[in-house]
Design a protein around this nucleic acid. Sequence first.
DNA 1: CTTGGAATGTCAACAAGGCTGACTTAAAAC
DNA 2: GTTTTAAGTCAGCCTTGTTGACATTCCAAG
Lengths: 168, 168
Amino acid sequence: MADQSARPSSESLLFLTDEQLRKGIEAMFFAYRGFTADPDRILEERGYGRAHHRAVHFIHRSPGTTVNNLLSILGVTKQSLNRVLRTLIEDGLVESKVGTKDKRERHLTLTDKGRELERALSDAQRNRMRDAYRKAGPEAVQGFRQVLVAMMDGDMRRHYLALKDASQ
Amino acid sequence: MADQSARPSSESLLFLTDEQLRKGIEAMFFAYRGFTADPDRILEERGYGRAHHRAVHFIHRSPGTTVNNLLSILGVTKQSLNRVLRTLIEDGLVESKVGTKDKRERHLTLTDKGRELERALSDAQRNRMRDAYRKAGPEAVQGFRQVLVAMMDGDMRRHYLALKDASQ
DNA sequence: CTTGGAATGTCAACAAGGCTGACTTAAAAC
DNA sequence: GTTTTAAGTCAGCCTTGTTGACATTCCAAG
């Protein structure tokens, strides 16, 4: 986080030319397309879209999460989320349970069917990510994550860091 | 399938647990939001959207490019691109010139007004990228680009590599 | 010279998924 | 007892993607 970590690397930050930065921007653009390509294919087969993917992903990640929490993670309006959530509940992929402590809240979890979709989507996306990591090598993976985290807005970084990470 | 999240997969050369891969996926998601946040604000002020940004960016990057070339870079239909292009031409940000050699083609360039918008957008985006790079450090930047390139689909990687790079 | 195909543009219709605004219900908080 | 909060709903709008059909222009091959 400390941006003056004083990496004693000869030219330090001098290699940040506009052209370098542009290539980084374009890399993000093209890579994001690859990043979503595989899930998009699976989603289309089943009549869902990216919005459904995002909802399913974060419900899987934080089972029992409330609608409000999901809203702030996804950064969309409740009307927008509700449209997606309604179809997922109707189709039996997501279960909505009234809260026990606070009965205004609805706690969202995936059903078996929902977990099956989540699995298909995340398998595809993890395979893509794994291949990219392997091609780039271990040190690259470190740097990749560091730059991405640094690129997030504060709100999003907090959400990101709050997601449980069983691996480190 | 293949849920080995309980096993840290130590036999692989990389520490690629499912959890690690998930964090990478989530980092992409949240970072892309940050990546587009600043341009989105500028675009909204001026009544444009991301589609306009993409068109302006790649016309700036390859002045005189044809519509067909732009289509294959952007990966949308000509009807979709045309709608965006038409408003940009009407608003005097883009100029469309009939080709001299092949008069069916239209060669697209930015006007002064178009360059002004491009500048505003890319300044914002480069600042974000530069800050992220500085926070992450020089080694991280290398890895960042490597993973992104490895994540692209073949078509997109070719487009990416074909873009002129004055800096390396 | 004619014709086929390529490049472009345009019209119409539609869908996903964002948005705002207004309003209801139920429950918690004060 | 009033206000605030969480959630849901309805209606309508916008951007940006999609198909399909069709016109125009022009290059190039027969």
